[in-house]
Every structure is written in structure tokens, then in C-alpha cells.
Design a binder for these strands. Structure first.
Length: 588
RNA sequence: GGGCAUGUAGCUCAGUUGGAUAGAGCGUCAGAUUCCGGUUCUGAAAGCCGAGGGUUCGAAUCCUUCCAUGCCCGCCA
């Protein structure tokens, strides 16, 4: 409806200037989508605002504007309602023409962004030698969705996995590896570390108990940073092992990332501190080198420092994040990424940190004009008790276990339903459906909630076949495919064949045509739940349509019209879900 | 103590630049089936939008004070 809205907005402004040719009044008369279906398709609320300026009753103003409006080709006569709203209802023939035009548009009416930018989306970011857990779920799912959206809009998107692959804890791990599997380092023996979490735990235990081991661990950190070959090899071995585990999960989630761990910026860290020194931002405080932040205070009301080099000379995460910003925003000739926008998808707890780091980057002059650094925060994943999600024994929930359970449950549901319906299906089918539904349910549950709030994780709810869930949406899609299987061609409609008559047809057409508005809205604030609630509403409208009107058995021209609506519904669902990172099924 | 969030129906949550009578889903209760997959559809009950004050034609939305909850606050990320 974007095109229609723009056209109407244009005419509305013309009518307003005709009605009130006052040079000194800036006439702003915005047209927005109607807040309720009974108000039509669009509404204009400008009359109330102008009432004071013009010193006339708002309804009279609205009527004066309507009198100058020429929109007969697009709408029914606009209605003045309430205190002075103007309501517009688009003509059925116009809707039909829009539906027909959209049937063959690959982008379903969504324009590409102008200008197209180079965007870095930084998300997921697990730590080497630790397992991915619920904490990584939201970043991975939301980040992937945002990256998909921005690429769809035509931006050149680089999806970076800022892996925790460097730092003091590696000394401990390397030292432990050297004890456990010394021959693996020389390549004489292939080592399978197996459960890296257990390995990490062992190393940590030993570190806490054994003083000699502590000393050795510290030496390994120094060795690693100095590039000592054997320590480096141990480090690589650990990274490789983790990478395999991560990749298995990314494959399952259909999430693609470019690995760009913290170690990538290691060489740049001294330069970052030098730059800050050059920019006269650096202050030595209590032996640490830091930048004092503007507008941020610590507990005692003193200015808050961002430490970039510790007392012992080591660097910390703030330094790495600064190095990353500098590299991402630098031009490609300077070895940079040339990004015009960098989006960080991390939990809301890091808001302060990013505000600090962005401020320092800004003051250091690393952010070129027109470039934008953006933290996209999200809330915690909580259990049914409203507290941070844990297993029954109190441990962190492994992401792999969480996905397994979702798929298991989806499978049990499916098998039970098949028994009830006396349906026979191949094992391949069952496995594929269970996997798709399970993963979709987990993703959708996360995305369908406003990301800024904490989110209560609940298997029963997300896998339910009713309500705002992935299975409900997938089922609506499956129904359309069912029509196709029964002989309804969703391939094409004859030109001019669409004739919208029944209210269910008109409702569905309107909903379908709103897709473009929703995508642009989602782009504005990067809230995937906007798209989710749209797709849920579309599924509901479709189910009503499907329930109340026959498609295949309908006489012409209804049959062709309804098939066209089915086709556009399927395409819209498919594209919408794809932007969420969710795959559709033809049968389930 | 400071900062950032959050507070809307029994539960889980939407609510667009301030717009019309406050919106879903689940649950509850009452209905629908000659139909392309009933995993559906129709309807009902359910609200002091945390509390007070302010801004204006108009506030869940903006400002302010307070209350409650969560997260963060110097060398971990």
C-alpha cells in the first residue's frame, strides 16, 4: 500500500494548500494507515492540529480539505468522522489491480533502501572452549533476522561473529592441553577433546588448586601473545574444536556468519591506545590507562573511566571493541571494512559498555560523518519462574539441548497426530518436519516478542498449534499448498481476472498489500516482532478466508480471484518467514 | 548512590510520529462441521494501562515526582 499511500498523501497536500492558501502556515497533513478496519484504509488527523492555528473548528477544516480532494479514481468519497478525522477507503478495483501487480513482483512491493549502505551486523559471539547456551540464542536469532532484513533491503551486509577467542583464560586452557595431550601439539596424535565444557571445568579446577599450574598458565598467556609456535598450535587446536561445535548449531539454525574473533584485532591494540594518546584522551589513573567518559559517573559521582590498558600492561575487551570499531569504519584502502553502519546485537546489560565505547570512538574521530554505530539490545531469557533460565539442576542450558528438546517435542506431537489421523509417513518426512517445526518454534517464539523486554521461555507455548506460534503460521501455509496439490494452479492468474467481492476476499487482499508498510516499519526500529504479528494476523485472515469461502469449487470469477489470493498469501508468508530465518513446509 | 530498562485482562504479551469505544493469544464459558488438511472458524466474560501531578482539542504513549521489579556500574566479556 506504500505506493497508494504516497499517491493519496500527495493529493491530500494539494487539497490542503488549495483549501488554505496561507503562505505563513506550514501545512502538514500526514496520512497514516487506519487504526481500525472500520475506518477504512487510511486516515488523516491533521485537521485537529490545524484547528488552533486557523482558529476554526476541526470538522470544518476537514470538510474544507475533503471538498478540494480529487481521489475518486482511487477511493470512495472520503468521510469526515469523529472530532475531525478524514477516512479513506480504497476501491475494490484498485485493490484488485494492486494484488494483480504484486503477484509477480519478486520483492512484493518493497522498495530497496536508498542509499544502499555497507553494514556490519555483529551478533552471536560465543566463547571458545565454552558451549553455546541460551545466552547466545537471542543474539543469534535476532541478529540473523536483522541481517536478513538489511540484505533484503539492498544493503551490503557483513555478518561478523565476534568470537571470544583470545584472552587470559587461554593460558589456563593451553597449559591444561599440554598436560592432557602433549603429542597432539606436535601433530603425532589427533586429539578429540570431546566435551570442551568438561575440559574447561577441569582446567579451571586445577587452576584454582594448583599454584604451579597457575604460574604455568600465566606463562602460556605471555607465550601466546608473543606468538610462540607450540602455544599458538595449542590455541588453534582449541579454537578448531570449538568451531566444529558452533558450526553444527549454526547449520541447524541456518545461520551464516563470518568468523572474526577478538584475536583478529590483537595486533591493532597498541595502535588504538596510541591513537587515543594522540587525540589527548588518555589519562593514567591508578596505573591503568583510560579515557574518562563524559556524562557518565561512577558510584561516588566521580567521572567514569573506560580502561583501555590495565595496570599490568594487558588490554581488555574495551580495547578490542575500540579496535574493532576503528577497523570496521576505516576505509578499505586503509585495511578497514568501510562500513557506514555497524549494528551490535547483544543483551541489554551491555548498554553502558557500548555507550562508553561509542563515545570514545566518536571523540577519537574514528566515526566518519554519516556513519552510525548502533547497539540493538535485547532482554534476558527467563524460565517459567521469571528468573534466568536454568536446568533443573541449576546449570546453564546448552543451546544444543534446548534445540534437541524442541525438535523432540515437535516429533512426539507429529507422531501422535499421525496416529490419530491414521496417517502413514516415511521416517524421512517425520524427521524433516520435526526438525523444521522445532527450530521454527524456538526462533519464532523469540522473534515474536518485543526484543527489549525479558522473554519467558516456554516449550509448550511455542510449540502449541494454536495462537501466535510458528506451527500455526506453518499450518496456514500448508493449507495453501494443499489447495495447490488438489489441482489449484498457484502459478499465474489471467490478466484482469481478479474481482474482489466477498468481505473475506477484501480483508485478505488488504492485509496482503500491507506487507511493504510492515517491512519498512521493521527497518525503522529493527523490531522483528512487528513482522511476526503481521504474519500472525495474515495467517488468521487467511484461515478465516479459507474456512468461510470455497476456493477450488467456487464459480468463476471467484475461483481465479481466490487462487490469486492464495498465491499471494503463500508468497508473502514464504518471504516474511524467510526474513525471520524460518523455513516453510508443504506438508506437516 | 548513579545509569538503563520494565510495570497494560487470571497468564504470556502487542500497542506505529500523541488520535476515535484499550488489542491479541492462551486459559475460561457458549456455539459452528454436506468444506480445498478442524492444527480451523464464530461469539461472550475479563482492564483504575503501577500511583499521583502536569502539558493539550486529545495521553497507555510526552514531562515530573513516587512505588515495585530486572540488569549494569575500574582494570572479566
Amino acid at each position: 500500500m506504500l505506493k497508494l499511500r504516497n499517491a493519496l498523501q500527495h493529493r491530500l497536500l494539494e487539497a490542503t494548500t488549495q483549501a488554505f492558501p496561507l503562505a505563513d502556515v506550514v501545512v502538514d497533513f500526514p496520512l497514516s494507515p487506519a487504526t481500525k478496519p472500520e475506518f477504512g484504509d487510511f486516515q488523516a488527523n491533521g485537521a485537529m492540529g490545524l484547528a488552533k492555528v486557523l482558529g476554526r473548528p476541526p470538522r470544518r477544516i476537514a470538510q474544507a480539505v475533503v471538498d478540494q480532494l480529487h481521489v475518486d479514481d482511487l477511493c470512495h468519497p472520503p468521510q469526515v468522522a469523529g472530532p475531525g478525522f478524514i477516512n479513506f477507503t480504497v476501491r475494490a478495483e484498485v485493490l484488485a489491480a494492486e494484488v494483480e501487480a504484486r503477484l509477480d513482483q519478486p520483492r512484493l512491493g518493497v522498495p530497496t533502501a536508498q542509499p544502499q549502505q555497507r553494514v556490519v551486523v555483529d551478533f552471536s559471539s560465543p566463547n571458545i572452549a565454552k558451549e553455546m547456551h541460551v545466552g547466545h540464542l537471542r543474539s543469534t536469532v535476532i541478529g540473523d533476522c536483522i541481517a536478513r532484513l538489511l540484505s533484503f533491503l539492498g544493503h551490503r551486509v557483513v555478518r561478523l561473529n565476534h568470537l571470544g577467542d583470545w584472552g587470559t583464560q587461554f593460558g589456563m586452557l593451553i597449559a591444561h592441553l599440554k598436560h592432557m595431550a602433549p603429542r597432539s601439539l606436535s601433530g603425532e596424535e589427533r586429539v578429540e577433546l570431546g566435551d570442551l565444557v568438561a575440559f574447561y571445568r577441569q582446567a579451571k579446577e586445577r587452576f584454582d588448586e594448583d599454584e604451579a599450574f597457575q604460574e604455568q598458565s600465566r606463562r602460556e598467556v605471555v607465550n601466546l601473545q608473543a606468538g610462540e609456535p607450540e602455544s599458538l598450535r595449542a590455541w588453534q587446536l582449541l579454537c578448531q574444536q570449538s568451531r566444529k561445535a558452533f558450526q553444527a548449531i549454526y547449520d541447524r539454525l541456518d545461520v551464516h556468519l563470518v568468523e572474526r574473533g577478538e584475536s583478529f584485532y590483537n595486533q591493532a591494540l597498541p595502535g588504538v591506545v596510541e591513537d587515543l594518546e594522540q587525540a589527548r584522551l588518555l589519562v593514567v589513573d591508578d596505573g591503568a590507562r583510560c579515557v574518562f567518559l563524559e556524562g557518565m559517573t561512577a558510584k561516588d559521582g566521580q567521572p567514569l573511566p573506560l580502561i583501555v590498558q590495565k595496570r599490568d600492561g594487558g588490554y581488555n575487551y574495551a580495547t578490542t571493541d575500540l579496535a574493532a570499531i576503528r577497523q570496521r569504519l576505516a576505509s578499505p584502502d586503509a585495511g578497514g571494512e568501510g562500513a557506514e553502519r555497524v549494528v551490535y546485537v547483544t543483551d541489554a546489560g551491555q548498554s553502558n559498555h557500548f555507550a562508553a565505547v561509542f563515545q570514545v570512538a566518536q571523540r577519537a574521530g574514528w566515526v566518519p560523518k554519516g556513519c552510525r554505530l548502533q547497539h540493538v539490545p535485547f532482554g534476558l531469557v527467563q524460565g517459567a519462574d521469571g528468573k534466568k533460565l536454568k536446568t533443573r539442576s541449576g546449570a546453564t542450558v546448552r543451546l544444543q539441548d534446548l534445540l534437541d528438546e524442541a525438535v523432540d517435542r515437535a516429533r512426539r506431537d507429529l507422531v501422535e497426530r499421525m496416529a490419530q489421523e491414521q496417517r502413514q509417513n516415511e521416517e524421512d518426512f517425520i524427521a524433516h518436519v520435526a526438525e523444521t517445526v522445532g527450530i521454527a518454534a524456538v526462533k519464532y517464539a523469540d522473534l515474536s516478542q518485543n526484543r527489549t523486554t525479558n522473554y519467558q521461555f516456554n516449550f509448550d507455548r511455542m510449540l502449541s498449534l494454536q495462537g501466535n506460534t510458528a506451527p500455526y503460521l506453518l499450518y496456514a501455509y500448508v493449507r495453501i499448498q494443499g489447495i495447490a496439490r488438489q489441482g489449484g494452479s498457484l502459478v499465474a492468474a489471467a490478466p484482469g481476472a481478479i474481482c474482489l467481492q466477498a468481505p473475506q476476499e477484501l480483508n485478505l487482499a488488504r492485509q496482503l498489500l500491507n506487507f511493504d508498510e510492515v517491512i519498512l516499519e521493521m527497518e525503522q526500529d529493527l523490531l522483528p516482532n512487528r513482522l511476526c504479528s503481521y504474519l500472525f494476523g495474515l495467517s488468521q485472515t487467511f484461515n478465516r478466508f479459507y474456512d468461510q469461502l470455497p476456493v477450488l469449487k467456487a464459480p468463476e470469477p471467484s475461483r481465479a480471484t481466490r487462487l490469486a489470493l492464495c498465491r499471494l498469501s503463500a508468497r508473502t508468508m514464504n518471504l516474511g518467514l524467510a526474513l525471520l530465518g524460518i523455513k516453510t513446509l508443504d506438508r506437516m
